[in-house]
Write a protein that binds this DNA or RNA. Sequence first.
DNA 1: CGGCGTCGGAAACGATTGGAAACAATTCCG
DNA 2: CGGAATTGTTTCCAATCGTTTCCGACGCCG
Lengths: 243, 243
Amino acid sequence: MTRTPHILIVEDDREIATLVSRFLRNNDFRIKAVANGREMDVALQDGRFDLIVLDLMLPGEDGLSLCRRLRSNGSIPIIMLTAKAEEIDRILGLEMGADDYLVKPFNPRELLARIRAVLRRAGGTPAPDVGESSVLSFSGWRLDKAVRRLFNPQGERVVLTGAEIDLLLAFCERPRRVLSRDQLLDLTQGRAAAPFERSIDVLVSRLRQKMERNPREPELIQTIRSGGYMFSPEIELSPGNPG
Amino acid sequence: MTRTPHILIVEDDREIATLVSRFLRNNDFRIKAVANGREMDVALQDGRFDLIVLDLMLPGEDGLSLCRRLRSNGSIPIIMLTAKAEEIDRILGLEMGADDYLVKPFNPRELLARIRAVLRRAGGTPAPDVGESSVLSFSGWRLDKAVRRLFNPQGERVVLTGAEIDLLLAFCERPRRVLSRDQLLDLTQGRAAAPFERSIDVLVSRLRQKMERNPREPELIQTIRSGGYMFSPEIELSPGNPG
DNA sequence: CGGCGTCGGAAACGATTGGAAACAATTCCG
DNA sequence: CGGAATTGTTTCCAATCGTTTCCGACGCCG
Protein backbone atom coordinates (compact mmCIF):
# COMPACT_ATOMS: atom_id res chain seq x y z
CA MET A 1 0.00 0.00 0.00
CA THR A 2 1.62 3.27 1.03
CA ARG A 3 5.20 2.28 0.74
CA THR A 4 7.66 3.09 3.52
CA PRO A 5 8.92 6.64 3.15
CA HIS A 6 12.45 7.11 1.92
CA ILE A 7 14.48 9.75 3.69
CA LEU A 8 17.80 11.30 2.77
CA ILE A 9 19.98 12.64 5.58
CA VAL A 10 22.70 15.15 4.74
CA GLU A 11 24.92 15.42 7.80
CA ASP A 12 28.68 15.48 8.08
CA ASP A 13 28.88 14.52 11.75
CA ARG A 14 29.14 10.79 11.42
CA GLU A 15 28.00 10.13 14.96
CA ILE A 16 24.75 12.05 14.60
CA ALA A 17 24.16 10.56 11.20
CA THR A 18 24.40 6.96 12.36
CA LEU A 19 22.41 7.62 15.50
CA VAL A 20 19.56 9.23 13.63
CA SER A 21 19.67 6.70 10.83
CA ARG A 22 19.36 3.82 13.21
CA PHE A 23 16.55 5.40 15.14
CA LEU A 24 14.54 6.22 12.05
CA ARG A 25 15.11 2.79 10.57
CA ASN A 26 13.68 1.31 13.72
CA ASN A 27 10.62 3.41 13.07
CA ASP A 28 9.87 2.10 9.64
CA PHE A 29 11.69 4.51 7.41
CA ARG A 30 14.14 3.75 4.68
CA ILE A 31 17.23 5.86 5.24
CA LYS A 32 20.17 6.96 3.16
CA ALA A 33 22.78 9.12 4.84
CA VAL A 34 25.36 11.24 3.02
CA ALA A 35 27.94 13.71 4.30
CA ASN A 36 27.90 16.64 1.89
CA GLY A 37 26.25 18.31 -1.05
CA ARG A 38 28.06 16.40 -3.72
CA GLU A 39 27.02 13.09 -2.26
CA MET A 40 23.49 14.44 -1.95
CA ASP A 41 23.36 15.16 -5.65
CA VAL A 42 24.51 11.66 -6.45
CA ALA A 43 21.95 10.14 -4.11
CA LEU A 44 19.16 12.20 -5.65
CA GLN A 45 20.18 11.01 -9.08
CA ASP A 46 20.11 7.42 -8.01
CA GLY A 47 16.98 7.19 -5.95
CA ARG A 48 13.68 8.72 -5.12
CA PHE A 49 13.24 10.38 -1.73
CA ASP A 50 10.20 11.59 0.14
CA LEU A 51 11.99 14.01 2.45
CA ILE A 52 15.43 15.46 3.11
CA VAL A 53 16.94 16.18 6.51
CA LEU A 54 19.58 18.80 5.89
CA ASP A 55 22.32 20.02 8.20
CA LEU A 56 22.99 23.74 7.98
CA MET A 57 26.74 23.54 8.50
CA LEU A 58 28.36 21.34 5.92
CA PRO A 59 31.79 21.13 4.39
CA GLY A 60 31.80 22.53 0.87
CA GLU A 61 28.48 23.89 -0.28
CA ASP A 62 26.51 24.69 2.85
CA GLY A 63 22.98 23.71 3.79
CA LEU A 64 21.44 27.04 2.92
CA SER A 65 22.70 26.91 -0.60
CA LEU A 66 21.65 23.30 -0.99
CA CYS A 67 18.21 24.11 0.30
CA ARG A 68 17.77 26.90 -2.20
CA ARG A 69 18.91 24.68 -5.01
CA LEU A 70 16.50 21.93 -3.99
CA ARG A 71 13.65 24.41 -3.81
CA SER A 72 14.34 25.80 -7.23
CA ASN A 73 14.26 22.31 -8.64
CA GLY A 74 11.26 20.72 -7.05
CA SER A 75 9.07 20.59 -4.02
CA ILE A 76 10.61 17.83 -1.97
CA PRO A 77 10.02 18.45 1.74
CA ILE A 78 13.04 19.62 3.74
CA ILE A 79 13.78 19.69 7.45
CA MET A 80 16.81 21.75 8.46
CA LEU A 81 19.13 21.09 11.38
CA THR A 82 21.01 23.96 12.99
CA ALA A 83 23.59 24.03 15.72
CA LYS A 84 22.33 27.20 17.38
CA ALA A 85 18.91 28.47 18.20
CA GLU A 86 19.84 31.97 17.06
CA GLU A 87 20.48 30.67 13.59
CA ILE A 88 16.84 29.94 13.08
CA ASP A 89 16.05 33.62 12.90
CA ARG A 90 18.73 34.12 10.35
CA ILE A 91 17.44 31.20 8.29
CA LEU A 92 13.90 32.42 8.46
CA GLY A 93 15.08 35.85 7.42
CA LEU A 94 16.64 34.36 4.35
CA GLU A 95 13.33 32.76 3.41
CA MET A 96 14.83 29.75 1.83
CA GLY A 97 11.77 27.76 2.51
CA ALA A 98 12.51 24.65 4.48
CA ASP A 99 9.39 22.95 5.80
CA ASP A 100 10.61 22.77 9.36
CA TYR A 101 13.63 23.43 11.53
CA LEU A 102 15.26 21.68 14.46
CA VAL A 103 17.99 22.85 16.82
CA LYS A 104 20.83 20.56 17.82
CA PRO A 105 21.06 18.79 20.11
CA PHE A 106 17.61 17.36 19.54
CA ASN A 107 15.72 14.36 20.75
CA PRO A 108 15.37 11.84 17.93
CA ARG A 109 11.72 11.44 18.83
CA GLU A 110 11.24 15.09 18.14
CA LEU A 111 12.75 14.68 14.71
CA LEU A 112 10.52 11.69 14.16
CA ALA A 113 7.45 13.71 15.03
CA ARG A 114 8.46 16.53 12.70
CA ILE A 115 9.13 14.15 9.88
CA ARG A 116 5.74 12.55 10.29
CA ALA A 117 4.02 15.92 10.43
CA VAL A 118 5.76 17.20 7.33
CA LEU A 119 5.09 14.00 5.42
CA ARG A 120 1.45 13.99 6.35
CA ARG A 121 1.20 17.60 5.29
CA ALA A 122 2.85 16.87 1.99
CA GLY A 123 -0.16 14.68 1.42
CA GLY A 124 0.03 11.67 -0.81
CA THR A 125 3.02 10.11 -2.34
CA PRO A 126 5.04 12.59 -4.33
CA ALA A 127 3.32 11.53 -7.51
CA PRO A 128 5.47 10.56 -10.47
CA ASP A 129 6.66 14.14 -10.58
CA VAL A 130 4.11 15.93 -12.65
CA GLY A 131 6.32 18.96 -12.87
CA GLU A 132 5.69 22.19 -14.71
CA SER A 133 4.98 20.81 -18.12
CA SER A 134 3.05 17.63 -18.04
CA VAL A 135 4.03 16.56 -21.54
CA LEU A 136 7.48 15.43 -22.57
CA SER A 137 8.69 13.96 -25.80
CA PHE A 138 11.58 11.92 -27.20
CA SER A 139 12.35 10.61 -30.68
CA GLY A 140 8.95 11.66 -31.89
CA TRP A 141 7.10 9.97 -29.05
CA ARG A 142 4.94 11.98 -26.70
CA LEU A 143 4.28 11.10 -23.07
CA ASP A 144 1.62 12.93 -21.07
CA LYS A 145 2.50 12.55 -17.45
CA ALA A 146 -0.76 13.93 -16.07
CA VAL A 147 -3.03 11.43 -17.75
CA ARG A 148 -0.29 8.83 -18.08
CA ARG A 149 -0.72 8.26 -21.80
CA LEU A 150 1.77 7.57 -24.53
CA PHE A 151 1.54 8.43 -28.24
CA ASN A 152 3.85 7.10 -30.93
CA PRO A 153 5.47 9.29 -33.61
CA GLN A 154 2.40 8.76 -35.81
CA GLY A 155 0.29 10.30 -33.07
CA GLU A 156 -1.51 7.04 -32.25
CA ARG A 157 -2.21 6.11 -28.71
CA VAL A 158 -0.11 3.23 -27.37
CA VAL A 159 -1.76 1.74 -24.32
CA LEU A 160 0.64 1.06 -21.46
CA THR A 161 -0.15 -0.49 -18.13
CA GLY A 162 0.55 1.35 -14.90
CA ALA A 163 3.84 -0.35 -14.15
CA GLU A 164 5.00 0.19 -17.70
CA ILE A 165 4.28 3.91 -17.48
CA ASP A 166 6.08 4.11 -14.15
CA LEU A 167 9.14 2.50 -15.64
CA LEU A 168 9.06 4.73 -18.69
CA LEU A 169 8.77 7.79 -16.46
CA ALA A 170 11.77 6.64 -14.44
CA PHE A 171 13.75 6.30 -17.65
CA CYS A 172 12.65 9.71 -18.86
CA GLU A 173 13.75 11.34 -15.64
CA ARG A 174 17.23 9.90 -16.04
CA PRO A 175 17.92 9.51 -19.74
CA ARG A 176 21.28 8.49 -21.18
CA ARG A 177 22.41 6.98 -17.93
CA VAL A 178 22.99 3.40 -17.00
CA LEU A 179 20.41 2.45 -14.41
CA SER A 180 20.77 -0.74 -12.44
CA ARG A 181 17.75 -2.93 -11.87
CA ASP A 182 17.99 -1.99 -8.25
CA GLN A 183 17.78 1.71 -9.03
CA LEU A 184 14.89 1.21 -11.40
CA LEU A 185 13.00 -0.76 -8.81
CA ASP A 186 13.66 1.96 -6.28
CA LEU A 187 12.53 4.67 -8.67
CA THR A 188 9.36 2.90 -9.69
CA GLN A 189 8.31 1.21 -6.50
CA GLY A 190 10.52 2.57 -3.77
CA ARG A 191 11.73 -0.81 -2.75
CA ALA A 192 14.91 -2.84 -3.02
CA ALA A 193 15.26 -5.85 -5.25
CA ALA A 194 14.98 -9.31 -3.79
CA PRO A 195 17.68 -11.76 -4.79
CA PHE A 196 16.97 -13.36 -8.17
CA GLU A 197 14.23 -10.83 -8.79
CA ARG A 198 13.61 -10.36 -12.51
CA SER A 199 10.57 -8.16 -12.57
CA ILE A 200 12.38 -5.19 -14.12
CA ASP A 201 13.62 -7.41 -16.93
CA VAL A 202 10.11 -8.53 -17.69
CA LEU A 203 8.82 -5.00 -17.63
CA VAL A 204 11.55 -3.79 -19.96
CA SER A 205 10.70 -6.61 -22.28
CA ARG A 206 7.03 -5.62 -22.30
CA LEU A 207 7.89 -1.98 -22.92
CA ARG A 208 10.06 -2.98 -25.83
CA GLN A 209 7.29 -5.05 -27.33
CA LYS A 210 5.06 -2.02 -27.36
CA MET A 211 7.59 0.66 -28.28
CA GLU A 212 10.51 -0.70 -30.24
CA ARG A 213 10.37 -1.04 -34.00
CA ASN A 214 12.20 -4.33 -33.64
CA PRO A 215 12.24 -5.54 -30.02
CA ARG A 216 15.19 -7.80 -30.78
CA GLU A 217 17.30 -4.78 -31.66
CA PRO A 218 16.17 -2.13 -29.23
CA GLU A 219 16.84 1.50 -30.09
CA LEU A 220 15.17 3.21 -27.13
CA ILE A 221 16.04 1.01 -24.18
CA GLN A 222 19.54 -0.43 -24.36
CA THR A 223 20.66 -3.42 -22.36
CA ILE A 224 23.93 -2.85 -20.54
CA ARG A 225 25.14 -6.28 -19.78
CA SER A 226 25.76 -6.85 -16.06
CA GLY A 227 25.00 -3.18 -15.53
CA GLY A 228 21.33 -2.60 -16.15
CA TYR A 229 19.50 -0.61 -18.78
CA MET A 230 19.89 2.76 -20.43
CA PHE A 231 17.28 4.98 -22.07
CA SER A 232 19.06 6.44 -25.08
CA PRO A 233 16.82 9.15 -26.55
CA GLU A 234 17.18 12.77 -25.65
CA ILE A 235 14.22 14.21 -23.79
CA GLU A 236 12.57 17.38 -25.05
CA LEU A 237 10.19 19.32 -22.89
CA SER A 238 8.15 21.10 -25.50
CA PRO A 239 5.92 18.53 -27.10
CA GLY A 240 7.02 17.43 -30.52
CA ASN A 241 4.83 18.07 -33.48
CA PRO A 242 2.42 15.13 -33.59
CA GLY A 243 1.83 15.33 -37.35
CA MET B 1 -3.96 40.94 -4.03
CA THR B 2 -2.34 39.25 -1.04
CA ARG B 3 -4.50 40.55 1.72
CA THR B 4 -3.23 40.37 5.29
CA PRO B 5 -3.86 36.89 6.60
CA HIS B 6 -6.65 36.43 9.10
CA ILE B 7 -5.91 34.16 12.02
CA LEU B 8 -8.20 32.68 14.63
CA ILE B 9 -6.74 31.82 18.02
CA VAL B 10 -8.60 29.37 20.25
CA GLU B 11 -7.01 29.57 23.70
CA ASP B 12 -8.58 29.73 27.12
CA ASP B 13 -5.54 31.08 28.93
CA ARG B 14 -6.22 34.78 28.65
CA GLU B 15 -2.62 35.76 29.27
CA ILE B 16 -1.21 33.64 26.48
CA ALA B 17 -4.01 34.71 24.18
CA THR B 18 -3.37 38.44 24.58
CA LEU B 19 0.38 38.03 24.42
CA VAL B 20 0.26 36.07 21.21
CA SER B 21 -2.42 38.28 19.70
CA ARG B 22 -0.43 41.42 20.28
CA PHE B 23 2.75 39.89 18.94
CA LEU B 24 1.09 38.62 15.78
CA ARG B 25 -0.74 41.89 15.18
CA ASN B 26 2.63 43.62 15.32
CA ASN B 27 3.70 41.30 12.56
CA ASP B 28 0.97 42.15 10.13
CA PHE B 29 -1.70 39.63 10.85
CA ARG B 30 -5.36 40.20 11.57
CA ILE B 31 -6.20 38.35 14.75
CA LYS B 32 -9.34 37.15 16.43
CA ALA B 33 -9.00 35.35 19.75
CA VAL B 34 -11.68 33.17 21.32
CA ALA B 35 -11.66 31.01 24.43
CA ASN B 36 -13.49 27.81 23.54
CA GLY B 37 -15.12 25.71 20.86
CA ARG B 38 -18.48 27.40 20.95
CA GLU B 39 -16.97 30.83 20.40
CA MET B 40 -14.88 29.35 17.64
CA ASP B 41 -17.97 28.17 15.81
CA VAL B 42 -19.50 31.62 16.06
CA ALA B 43 -16.32 33.25 14.78
CA LEU B 44 -16.15 30.89 11.86
CA GLN B 45 -19.73 31.76 10.96
CA ASP B 46 -18.91 35.44 10.96
CA GLY B 47 -15.64 35.61 9.09
CA ARG B 48 -13.18 33.91 6.80
CA PHE B 49 -9.96 32.74 8.40
CA ASP B 50 -6.74 31.64 6.79
CA LEU B 51 -5.44 29.65 9.71
CA ILE B 52 -6.46 28.49 13.17
CA VAL B 53 -4.18 28.26 16.21
CA LEU B 54 -5.80 25.72 18.47
CA ASP B 55 -5.03 24.91 22.08
CA LEU B 56 -5.25 21.23 22.94
CA MET B 57 -6.66 21.67 26.43
CA LEU B 58 -9.88 23.62 26.35
CA PRO B 59 -12.94 23.83 28.59
CA GLY B 60 -15.87 22.04 27.01
CA GLU B 61 -15.12 20.37 23.70
CA ASP B 62 -11.36 19.86 23.58
CA GLY B 63 -8.91 20.79 20.86
CA LEU B 64 -8.64 17.31 19.45
CA SER B 65 -12.34 17.07 18.84
CA LEU B 66 -12.46 20.57 17.37
CA CYS B 67 -9.60 19.75 15.08
CA ARG B 68 -11.34 16.69 13.76
CA ARG B 69 -14.52 18.65 13.18
CA LEU B 70 -12.64 21.35 11.32
CA ARG B 71 -10.93 18.77 9.20
CA SER B 72 -14.13 17.06 8.28
CA ASN B 73 -15.56 20.38 7.14
CA GLY B 74 -12.79 21.92 5.13
CA SER B 75 -9.09 22.23 4.72
CA ILE B 76 -8.28 25.30 6.78
CA PRO B 77 -4.73 25.09 8.14
CA ILE B 78 -4.41 24.32 11.84
CA ILE B 79 -1.53 24.70 14.28
CA MET B 80 -1.98 22.94 17.60
CA LEU B 81 -0.61 24.04 20.95
CA THR B 82 0.07 21.47 23.65
CA ALA B 83 1.20 21.83 27.22
CA LYS B 84 3.50 18.84 27.23
CA ALA B 85 5.99 17.48 24.77
CA GLU B 86 4.75 13.94 25.40
CA GLU B 87 1.35 14.88 24.12
CA ILE B 88 2.67 15.36 20.63
CA ASP B 89 3.19 11.67 20.23
CA ARG B 90 -0.32 11.01 21.38
CA ILE B 91 -1.71 13.61 19.01
CA LEU B 92 0.26 12.25 16.12
CA GLY B 93 -0.94 8.78 16.99
CA LEU B 94 -4.50 9.97 16.76
CA GLU B 95 -3.91 11.20 13.25
CA MET B 96 -6.18 14.15 13.46
CA GLY B 97 -4.16 16.01 10.94
CA ALA B 98 -3.14 19.39 12.22
CA ASP B 99 -0.63 21.11 9.98
CA ASP B 100 1.89 21.71 12.72
CA TYR B 101 2.38 21.45 16.48
CA LEU B 102 4.02 23.58 19.13
CA VAL B 103 4.81 22.83 22.76
CA LYS B 104 4.10 25.37 25.49
CA PRO B 105 5.84 27.43 26.61
CA PHE B 106 6.93 28.59 23.20
CA ASN B 107 8.68 31.61 21.86
CA PRO B 108 6.18 33.75 19.94
CA ARG B 109 8.73 34.11 17.17
CA GLU B 110 8.65 30.35 16.80
CA LEU B 111 4.90 30.44 16.42
CA LEU B 112 5.28 33.23 13.88
CA ALA B 113 7.70 31.14 11.87
CA ARG B 114 5.37 28.14 11.91
CA ILE B 115 2.40 30.24 10.86
CA ARG B 116 4.32 31.69 7.96
CA ALA B 117 5.56 28.28 6.90
CA VAL B 118 2.09 26.76 6.99
CA LEU B 119 0.55 29.70 5.16
CA ARG B 120 3.21 29.67 2.52
CA ARG B 121 2.63 26.02 2.01
CA ALA B 122 -1.12 26.33 1.90
CA GLY B 123 -1.02 29.28 -0.45
CA GLY B 124 1.83 28.37 -2.70
CA THR B 125 0.95 24.79 -3.44
CA PRO B 126 -0.93 23.90 -6.58
CA ALA B 127 -3.88 23.21 -4.32
CA PRO B 128 -5.70 26.51 -4.08
CA ASP B 129 -7.54 27.26 -0.91
CA VAL B 130 -11.02 26.24 -1.78
CA GLY B 131 -12.24 28.49 0.98
CA GLU B 132 -11.35 31.62 -0.98
CA SER B 133 -13.60 31.41 -3.92
CA SER B 134 -16.59 29.19 -3.91
CA VAL B 135 -16.11 28.27 -7.55
CA LEU B 136 -13.22 26.28 -8.89
CA SER B 137 -12.64 24.82 -12.30
CA PHE B 138 -10.56 22.17 -14.01
CA SER B 139 -10.35 20.97 -17.61
CA GLY B 140 -13.37 23.02 -18.52
CA TRP B 141 -15.50 21.72 -15.65
CA ARG B 142 -16.84 24.08 -13.00
CA LEU B 143 -17.55 23.11 -9.43
CA ASP B 144 -19.42 25.49 -7.17
CA LYS B 145 -18.42 24.57 -3.69
CA ALA B 146 -21.00 26.74 -1.97
CA VAL B 147 -24.03 25.17 -3.60
CA ARG B 148 -22.27 21.87 -4.32
CA ARG B 149 -23.08 21.80 -8.01
CA LEU B 150 -21.05 20.59 -10.93
CA PHE B 151 -21.20 21.79 -14.54
CA ASN B 152 -19.55 20.07 -17.47
CA PRO B 153 -17.51 21.91 -20.12
CA GLN B 154 -20.70 22.47 -22.10
CA GLY B 155 -22.13 24.32 -19.15
CA GLU B 156 -24.75 21.66 -18.41
CA ARG B 157 -25.49 20.70 -14.86
CA VAL B 158 -24.28 17.24 -13.89
CA VAL B 159 -26.07 16.02 -10.81
CA LEU B 160 -23.85 14.43 -8.20
CA THR B 161 -24.88 12.88 -4.94
CA GLY B 162 -23.48 14.15 -1.67
CA ALA B 163 -20.82 11.51 -1.29
CA GLU B 164 -19.74 12.02 -4.88
CA ILE B 165 -19.31 15.76 -4.34
CA ASP B 166 -17.35 15.12 -1.16
CA LEU B 167 -14.98 12.84 -2.98
CA LEU B 168 -14.58 15.27 -5.86
CA LEU B 169 -13.81 18.06 -3.42
CA ALA B 170 -11.21 15.94 -1.70
CA PHE B 171 -9.59 15.33 -5.07
CA CYS B 172 -9.73 19.02 -5.93
CA GLU B 173 -7.98 19.95 -2.73
CA ARG B 174 -5.10 17.64 -3.53
CA PRO B 175 -4.76 17.42 -7.26
CA ARG B 176 -1.93 15.59 -8.95
CA ARG B 177 -1.13 13.59 -5.88
CA VAL B 178 -1.51 9.92 -5.33
CA LEU B 179 -4.12 9.52 -2.63
CA SER B 180 -4.60 6.18 -0.95
CA ARG B 181 -8.09 4.88 -0.34
CA ASP B 182 -7.41 5.37 3.31
CA GLN B 183 -6.56 9.02 2.84
CA LEU B 184 -9.60 9.59 0.68
CA LEU B 185 -11.85 7.98 3.23
CA ASP B 186 -10.28 10.11 5.92
CA LEU B 187 -10.69 13.27 3.87
CA THR B 188 -14.30 12.61 2.97
CA GLN B 189 -15.61 10.98 6.10
CA GLY B 190 -12.91 11.35 8.70
CA ARG B 191 -12.72 7.67 9.34
CA ALA B 192 -10.31 4.86 8.63
CA ALA B 193 -10.94 2.11 6.15
CA ALA B 194 -12.06 -1.28 7.36
CA PRO B 195 -10.21 -4.24 5.95
CA PHE B 196 -11.54 -5.23 2.53
CA GLU B 197 -13.52 -2.03 2.36
CA ARG B 198 -14.22 -1.04 -1.23
CA SER B 199 -16.50 1.93 -0.86
CA ILE B 200 -14.01 4.41 -2.30
CA ASP B 201 -13.60 2.22 -5.35
CA VAL B 202 -17.32 2.21 -5.93
CA LEU B 203 -17.56 5.94 -5.48
CA VAL B 204 -14.72 6.56 -7.89
CA SER B 205 -16.44 4.33 -10.37
CA ARG B 206 -19.67 6.29 -10.02
CA LEU B 207 -17.86 9.59 -10.43
CA ARG B 208 -16.22 8.29 -13.55
CA GLN B 209 -19.54 7.21 -14.99
CA LYS B 210 -20.78 10.75 -14.65
CA MET B 211 -17.68 12.67 -15.55
CA GLU B 212 -15.35 10.75 -17.82
CA ARG B 213 -15.72 10.82 -21.56
CA ASN B 214 -14.94 7.12 -21.57
CA PRO B 215 -15.07 5.62 -18.07
CA ARG B 216 -12.93 2.71 -19.20
CA GLU B 217 -10.07 5.06 -20.02
CA PRO B 218 -10.29 7.73 -17.36
CA GLU B 219 -8.62 11.09 -17.97
CA LEU B 220 -9.60 12.88 -14.78
CA ILE B 221 -9.23 10.25 -12.08
CA GLN B 222 -6.31 7.91 -12.63
CA THR B 223 -6.01 4.56 -10.93
CA ILE B 224 -2.61 4.02 -9.36
CA ARG B 225 -2.44 0.32 -8.87
CA SER B 226 -1.77 -0.72 -5.28
CA GLY B 227 -1.45 2.97 -4.45
CA GLY B 228 -4.80 4.62 -4.77
CA TYR B 229 -6.10 7.27 -7.12
CA MET B 230 -4.83 10.52 -8.56
CA PHE B 231 -6.80 13.51 -9.81
CA SER B 232 -4.86 14.67 -12.84
CA PRO B 233 -6.27 18.05 -13.96
CA GLU B 234 -4.83 21.32 -12.84
CA ILE B 235 -7.19 23.35 -10.69
CA GLU B 236 -7.88 26.93 -11.72
CA LEU B 237 -9.47 29.43 -9.42
CA SER B 238 -10.98 31.82 -11.92
CA PRO B 239 -14.02 30.04 -13.25
CA GLY B 240 -14.26 29.33 -16.92
CA ASN B 241 -16.82 31.12 -18.98
CA PRO B 242 -20.10 29.35 -18.31
CA GLY B 243 -21.11 29.76 -21.97
C1' DC C 1 37.72 -23.08 -32.05
C1' DG C 2 34.84 -25.24 -28.50
C1' DG C 3 33.16 -25.84 -23.70
C1' DC C 4 31.30 -23.74 -19.69
C1' DG C 5 29.24 -20.37 -16.80
C1' DT C 6 26.70 -16.16 -16.58
C1' DC C 7 23.35 -13.06 -18.18
C1' DG C 8 19.22 -11.58 -20.21
C1' DG C 9 14.85 -12.48 -23.29
C1' DA C 10 10.57 -14.86 -23.73
C1' DA C 11 6.69 -17.46 -22.53
C1' DA C 12 3.68 -19.53 -19.26
C1' DC C 13 1.64 -19.38 -14.92
C1' DG C 14 -0.55 -17.79 -10.73
C1' DA C 15 -1.61 -14.28 -7.30
C1' DT C 16 -3.23 -9.76 -6.60
C1' DT C 17 -5.80 -5.87 -7.77
C1' DG C 18 -9.48 -3.09 -9.26
C1' DG C 19 -13.95 -2.49 -12.18
C1' DA C 20 -18.69 -3.66 -12.59
C1' DA C 21 -23.02 -5.31 -11.36
C1' DA C 22 -26.30 -6.87 -8.18
C1' DC C 23 -27.91 -6.54 -3.82
C1' DA C 24 -28.69 -4.87 0.97
C1' DA C 25 -28.79 -1.24 4.23
C1' DT C 26 -29.50 3.39 5.22
C1' DT C 27 -31.14 7.90 4.67
C1' DC C 28 -34.24 11.22 3.03
C1' DC C 29 -38.51 13.17 2.16
C1' DG C 30 -43.08 13.77 2.30
C1' DC D 1 -45.09 5.03 7.63
C1' DG D 2 -43.70 4.19 2.70
C1' DG D 3 -41.21 4.73 -1.37
C1' DA D 4 -37.27 6.56 -3.65
C1' DA D 5 -32.65 7.93 -3.66
C1' DT D 6 -28.36 7.16 -1.88
C1' DT D 7 -24.60 4.60 -0.06
C1' DG D 8 -22.06 0.53 1.43
C1' DT D 9 -21.21 -4.63 0.70
C1' DT D 10 -20.50 -8.61 -1.78
C1' DT D 11 -19.37 -11.26 -5.63
C1' DC D 12 -17.53 -12.20 -9.96
C1' DC D 13 -14.30 -11.42 -13.54
C1' DA D 14 -10.71 -9.33 -16.41
C1' DA D 15 -6.47 -6.94 -16.34
C1' DT D 16 -2.22 -6.61 -14.51
C1' DC D 17 2.08 -7.82 -12.60
C1' DG D 18 5.60 -10.66 -10.38
C1' DT D 19 7.66 -15.30 -10.53
C1' DT D 20 9.49 -19.14 -12.59
C1' DT D 21 11.43 -21.76 -16.07
C1' DC D 22 13.65 -22.55 -20.21
C1' DC D 23 16.71 -21.31 -23.67
C1' DG D 24 19.68 -18.61 -26.50
C1' DA D 25 23.51 -15.12 -26.48
C1' DC D 26 27.72 -13.69 -24.89
C1' DG D 27 32.23 -13.71 -22.84
C1' DC D 28 36.02 -16.09 -20.73
C1' DC D 29 39.35 -19.66 -20.79
C1' DG D 30 42.12 -23.08 -22.41
